[in-house]
Amino acid sequence: PPQTPVRAAMDVIQQLKMTLHSASDRPSEALISYFNNCTVNPTEDIIKRVEYLGNVFKEKFAEALGMECAEIGYQRFNLAKRLYFRVMESMLKSEEKRLSVQNFSKLLNIDTFHTSLLGCSVEVVMATYGSSGSILQTGTTHAETNLSFPWILHIFKLKAFDFYKVIESFIKVEPCLTREMVKHLEGCEHRIMESLAWQTDSPIFELIKQSREQEGQTEQPEPTSS
C-alpha cells in the first residue's frame, strides 16, 4: 500500500512492538550471569527499582490522562521495561568487549545509572507514541504530547545530567531506533546541554569543582577570572 503519514506513524509503533515482542520483561540469562559475576549482586535492587518506578510511572500517567488510561500506562511501561533489559544487556556486552572484564559491580549498583537507562527507555516508548499523536488522534495521544521530555525527569526525580550520560551509549547499542528517534534523543541532549544541566541543583557543578581541585593539585594556580 502507498506510504501515508498515518501508515508511517503506525509502522513506527508496529516496529517498536515487533522489536520488543521477543524481548523479555525480566532479566535474561545473560543479564543474570552478569549480575552473578558482581562483587555485590545487584539483582534484588534492580527488580525492586523497576517495580517501584513502574508504579510511579503508571500512577503519574493515569493522573495526567485519567484513570480510564491506566491500562495504556501499564502497556507503555511494559514496553519500556523490555527495552531497558534489552539495552542493558547490549551495553554490558559492549563494555565486556571493550574492557575485557565481566565484573560490572560498581556500574550495576549505581541507582542513577539504572534510573537513567529506564528513563531513556520510557522516553523512547513515549516519543514513539507521542510523535504519532497529531496524526492518529486516537484519543489519548494528543494529551500524551504533554508527557514528552523532560516529563520523565520529573516523575523519576532524575537529574538531567545523569540522564544525558546514557543517551549516547543507548543509541550506539540499540540498532532498532529509527532516524526520527535518534533525532529526538539528540534533541533531548541539546536541551540538557543548553539549559537543564545548568539548574541550581545539578551534579555538574560538583564535577566542575572536583575537576578544578584536581587541576589545582597538579598545576600552578591561575589568576581568578570573572
Binding site: M91, S94, L99, F104, K106, L107, K165, S169, I171
Partner: peptide, 21 residues
Amino acid sequence: FHDYHFGLEENEGISELFDCD
C-alpha cells in the same frame, strides 16, 4: 546512526561516564 554527533572517544563508554573505570 544518521547525522548523530558522538561525543565519546573510541576508548570511552558508559563505565567511564558513571565513574567506574
